[in-house]
Design a protein around this nucleic acid. Structure first.
Length: 400
RNA sequence: GGGCAGGUACCCAAGCGGCCAAAGGGGACUGACUGUAAAUCAGUUGGCUACGCCUUCGGAGGUUCGAAUCCUUCCCUGCCCA
């Protein structure tokens, strides 16, 4: 369907081409060559956990020029089942998306579904969030499931931990390293890349140790997991600063589960090449949209009769066609179109941001881009927060 | 004209002597959301010179230490009978 994205490369279809490093910041621009086509980096990947980017279809994603999306091992294993997806021709064919797919291993569910699972050195046992049935995940089974799904990039099973507790993170790290080796051993599919995942919470010593150990195993790409799970931005940035100089420069760095628009800009400056995040799509479904001036909650009464599009200079279908007043109406009326139109805009915003960032890097002007973007975006954000805080205080004063 | 059932906050609706500024919905308003158990979740929703006071349960009057709750009367709504 997209011949331009089908660049097969024999038995080693995956590679990372580092094209340019920004002179001032060290931010990187490159290309991921995958079995289903090339992905320019830095890249932001929309999340399609259950073989769909919620509320959109592949045509929408193609129109947005989405380079790559995520799927999820845990969720697709439970429903509809990896065997079924395999019989249906693999995840790409099953969901009608023929560009690259990255699958998460279920490591995040170790964190998000922590009340429903038990971890031991050999793997993780989940009680299904759907029907309560018991399911065992091991490094080998997780690799096998992802091979059945046929994603272009698969992830090792890892233990995404609460970021604070040093002792627990050391244990989780030990297991994650054990599992990384076993995943590598088990992995067979030559048209699929398997990435390792650096863990270690907010602890620089553990992170350094993890990065070194995984590098010694020789993965084609490295993810940074266990961030943006409750720790402060300062901690997240500190850890990225620790990792930036010690992660293999020739391999892609994937910051899992991040982030917001400002996260993308800030973390690219700290050497990250790949991102994925549910934030854009989830916020969209809950009525919040991105603008260059910051996040806007379209439910707010101030937009009731606002004839403007979300963002005047945005070329997405939503901004070309609809007013804030209409979008607000759809949200308030709980119409499904609201989710779709808002999602289209938020993804357009994120994907454009990644493209703009990349262009700025290629032209050695990323530093200025970074400063300008954050000054505009964070100022608006700060204004909004201050206004909210004042309103909150005022309401407290009135109540008390 | 007679009989019956009703009139409670923005709407619907519980309460039927004190624990009632008044349950529960809805609506409205606000916030949160970062490898998706999320088209979800949380808070606010009479006023004020606020650890207390003022106004409010159709209107007016009364009983009572105390009334949304009991009594009288008037107004209004619905149904039934003339």
């Amino acid at each position: 369907m997209q011949p331009d994205h089908l660049t097969h490369r024999g038995s080693t279809p995956f590679s990372f081409e580092l094209i340019h490093t920004d002179r001032q910041t060290g931010a990187r621009a490159g290309i991921l060559h995958t079995a289903h086509g090339d992905v320019p980096t830095p890249v932001y990947c929309p999340v399609g956990t259950q073989a769909t980017v919620k509320s959109l279809d592949p045509r929408d994603l193609a129109e947005l020029d989405t380079p790559m999306i995520l799927g999820n091992t845990y969720h697709l294993y439970l429903r509809p089942g990896a065997d079924l997806v395999e019989r249906m021709g693999g995840l790409h064919a099953f969901m009608g998306w023929h560009r690259p797919i990255l699958t998460d291993s279920g490591g995040y569910q170790v964190f998000s579904l922590r009340d429903l699972r038990q971890v031991d050195d050999d793997g993780v046992t989940f009680r299904s969030h759907i029907d309560g049935s018991t399911h065992r995940f091991t490094p080998e089974s997780v690799v096998r499931i992802q091979e059945q799904l046929g994603s272009d990039i698969a992830m090792v099973l890892d233990e995404c931990a609460e970021p604070e507790d040093h002792a627990y993170n050391r244990e989780a790290l030990r297991r994650t390293h054990l599992w990384a080796e076993r995943c590598l051993q088990a992995h067979q599919r030559p048209d699929q890349a398997l990435f390792g995942i650096v863990q270690g919470g907010i602890h620089a010593d553990l992170r350094a140790q993890s990065a070194a150990h995984l590098a010694s195993l020789g993965f084609p790409g490295y993810a940074i997991g266990g961030l943006s799970v409750g720790e402060s931005k300062a901690d997240m940035h500190r850890i990225l600063r620790v990792l930036n100089p010690i992660m293999p420069a020739a391999k892609p760095r994937y910051l899992m589960g991040v982030g917001s628009p400002e996260d993308i800009v800030q973390c690219v400056a700290l050497g990250v090449d790949m991102f994925d995040c549910v934030l854009a799509t989830r916020l969209a479904r809950n009525g919040a949209v991105f603008t260059p001036e910051g996040r806007v909650n379209l439910r707010n009464a101030q937009f009731r009769e606002d004839p403007r599009p979300i963002q005047a200079d945005c070329d997405c279908y939503t901004c070309r066609s609809f007013s804030r007043a209409y979008l607000r109406h759809l949200i308030i009326a709980q119409e499904i179109l609201a989710a779709r139109l808002n999602t289209i805009h938020n993804l357009a915003f994120m994907l454009r941001l990644a493209r703009d960032v990349r262009q700025a890097i290629l032209e050695d002007r990323f530093s200025a881009f970074h400063d300008t973007f954050l000054a505009t975006y964070q100022t608006a954000d700060a204004h909004a927060r201050r206004a909210n805080r004042d309103a909150f205080r005022a309401s407290r004063n009135t109540d008390a």
